[in-house]
């Protein structure tokens, strides 16, 4: 199995470290030709969504990634990655890849002073460590979206078919379970494809 990690800006190395710990092969996607490599899934990391979007368009990668996701490529977006996937970002002028039927709010907890850690439930698993850095949350979800985590009445993780998004950063903890969950999604998808 090969997972591509979008490496335009942000905390991509942290995701690669998690995948390595799970014995999954990972590679960096920095430009269009990197998208030619065989890929079973893609991770959109944390960082600045405006920066990543700008580079996705300038480096001519945006349409390719969007089409792949629409065709069923498993994708996992964290924080900025969630904003990239959202159908709509409510308090922001631009929306991005827009493949996931969620409405998100950027910087929903305010500035850096609003960043926090907590523990919560993810897809029925209790006591998961959550790290929120200038994080968004999900204001509403479409009917095919499964809500996976709720913190203080706000949706912070969700799944729609091949798409997984978290407002927090599992890659900043040493808990591998959410990455394992994504790898399982990729396995299921591969099975269907065969």
């Amino acid at each position: 199995m090969q997972i591509g990690v979008l490496a335009l800006q942000g905390a991509f190395y942290e995701h690669i470290k998690m995948l390595k710990a799970l014995n999954v092969e990972a590679f960096e996607i920095r430009q269009k030709k990197d998208l030619d490599k065989p890929m079973d899934g893609i991770i959109l990391p944390g960082g600045e969504s405006t920066t990543m979007y700008k580079l996705l368009t300038d480096l001519d990668m945006f349409e390719v990634i969007k089409k792949e996701i629409q065709a069923g490529l498993p994708v996992f977006g964290t924080c900025a990655g969630l904003l990239l996937l959202a159908k709509k970002v409510n308090n922001h002028t631009s929306s991005y890849i827009q493949t996931m039927d969620i409405v998100a709010k950027k910087n929903a907890y305010g500035r850096q002073l609003g960043s926090f850690n907590t523990t919560g439930n993810f897809a029925g698993i209790d006591n998961m460590p959550f790290v929120f850095i200038r994080a968004p949350f999900i204001e509403s979800v479409g009917k095919n979206v499964e809500v996976l985590s709720v913190i203080d009445n706000m949706i912070v993780a969700a799944k729609e078919d091949n798409q997984l998004a978290t407002a927090f950063h599992p890659e900043l903890t040493d808990d591998l379970r959410i990455h394992k969950y994504f790898i399982e999604m990729v396995r299921q998808y591969n099975k269907k494809a065969i």
Binding site: A7, G10, A11, E14, G47, E48, S115, N117, I133
Partner: peptide, 16 residues
């Protein structure tokens, strides 16, 4: 842990 959270914001700025 404010210090950890603050280091982590810097991690999000990497490559930028």
């Amino acid at each position: 842990n404010r210090y950890e959270l603050n280091k982590e914001l810097a991690q999000m700025l990497k490559g930028g």
